[in-house]
Amino acid sequence: MIIGVHHLAISTPDIDRFVDYYHRMFGFEQVGGGGWEPGNDRIDRMVGLPASSARYAMIRLSTLHIEVFEYTAPRGHAVHPRMCDHGLTHLCLYTNDIEADYQRLAAQGMAFNCPPGGSGATRATYGQDCDGNTVELLQIVDDACGFAYPG
């Protein structure tokens, strides 16, 4: 039986920069890591990439883990889906003070599309991380909205 979500994965061209950014900007802590060299048939089959090699780090914020990969073979390329494109389009981080976090992150150099705003139930804004991935900041201001943050 599936009981929850453990992690999502993000590929980056620079794992050290990415892990440092998510630590400084959002408070993620590294809780694991490792890698593999070419010739690991089991991993090549699992990821669908022959002769692959990579480093990885597992980072965590509360109950969310992000597995970060830097592939050395094959080398990847940047993909920046628009919100209307199919597939995963953004990571949403919950905040209990969106205005303060928006101001803090913007002052540290995070680019945002616009200031926080929203409906009667939520306040949100979208910005870009160090690799251009879209990160949403969300604050629920009406706990009766039906999807209130459980923590």
Rank of each mutant, 00 (worst) to 15 (best):
G118I: 02
L49I: 12
A54T: 04
A111K: 14
A54H: 04
P50L: 01
D85V: 03
R82F: 03
H23F: 10
G151C: 03
Q139F: 03
D44R: 02
I43H: 03
G127A: 07
Y71I: 03
V79C: 02
D41S: 06
A78E: 07
R82W: 02
P74Q: 02
R123V: 04
R82Q: 11
H6Q: 12
A73F: 03
S62E: 09
P116S: 10
A106L: 14
E29Y: 02
G35M: 09
D41F: 01
T125N: 02
L88Y: 09
M83K: 14
T72P: 00
R45W: 00
I15L: 15
S11P: 00
L93D: 06
N113E: 15
A57D: 04
D101V: 11
M83H: 14
H90N: 10
P38G: 10
S119P: 11
R55I: 06
H23W: 04
P38L: 14
D131S: 02
R55C: 07
R42N: 09
L8K: 11
A124Q: 11
G76S: 15
G127S: 08
F69K: 00
Y102Q: 08
V141H: 01
P81C: 10
A9C: 11
M1E: 15
N113L: 11
G33W: 13
M110S: 03
I15Y: 05
R104T: 13
E29I: 05
G34R: 13
Y22R: 01
L93I: 12
A73K: 01
D44C: 03
I43C: 03
P81K: 09
Q128K: 07
G117W: 05
F69W: 03
E37C: 08
G132A: 10
E136H: 07
R75T: 09
Y21I: 14
F18A: 09
M25H: 11
V79N: 07
A57Q: 04
T63R: 15
G4R: 00
I3V: 13
L49R: 14
Y21H: 15
N40M: 12
Y102I: 00
I140L: 07
L49T: 08
M1S: 15
P38W: 13
G48P: 06
H23P: 09
L64K: 05
G120K: 06
H23G: 13
A148V: 07
G33S: 12
T95I: 00
G34D: 08
Q103E: 13
E29S: 08
V68C: 13
L137D: 00
H65E: 15
G4P: 02
G120N: 01
G117L: 08
F147P: 01
P81F: 05
L64F: 01
G132Y: 02
I59P: 07
Q103F: 01
C114G: 11
F112N: 08
A78G: 00
A121Q: 12
P50F: 03
G33A: 12
H23E: 10
V19Y: 00
D143E: 08
Q103C: 01
I66K: 01
P115F: 13
A121H: 11
A78H: 00
G34M: 12
L137Q: 00
P150V: 15
V79F: 01
